[in-house]
């Protein structure tokens, strides 16, 4: 009887510890860095995305803000930010551009050269003078 009681106490303690670790792990999990495994809600040309934001920012936000989208365009510049992540800007006709910050593991700068056409998937953060995509991954 005593042995059984001890067994139950151990079982409760171990279960409690596992649940505790899982809860702490969940609460303190790091922010996901990339959207590589997420499905894009829309695929469009970078110039078209910029045009939509320049024409009607509110409408464009209702379609894209916070969502994962894929944009295709010609790279106009590649720079690296203060965390050494590649920041790709697409060619455009206006002053603004579509700016994509690639997530760390995707930041292989050698793949990204000015003048090449690429498709990049990222999370839309909105519009300043540029349309800003973050957590981006190179699709092709």
């Amino acid at each position: 009887m005593k042995k059984q009681k001890k067994k139950i106490i151990w079982l409760v303690l171990i279960t409690g510890a596992i649940i505790g670790v899982a809860v702490i792990g969940y609460l303190f999990r790091p922010t996901s860095e990339c959207v590589c495994n997420k499905k894009a809600v829309a695929t469009l040309a970078a110039t078209e995305l910029l045009n939509q934001y320049e024409t009607d920012e509110e409408k464009a936000n209702s379609l894209y803000l916070g969502n994962v989208i894929a944009v295709e365009g010609i790279i106009s510049s590649v720079e690296s930010d203060d965390l050494n992540r590649a920041v790709v800007a697409f060619e455009s006709q206006s002053f603004g551009t579509v700016s994509c910050t690639l997530c760390e593991k995707e930041s292989e700068m050698e793949k990204l050269t000015e003048g090449t056409t690429v498709t990049i998937k990222g999370q839309c953060s909105g519009y300043t003078f540029d349309v800003v995509l973050v957590k981006c991954c190179l699709v092709n």
Partner: peptide, 10 residues
């Protein structure tokens, strides 16, 4: 842009 903030914890 508020959505461009990066916070370490999800």
């Amino acid at each position: 842009l508020i959505k461009a903030f990066e916070l370490p914890l999800a």
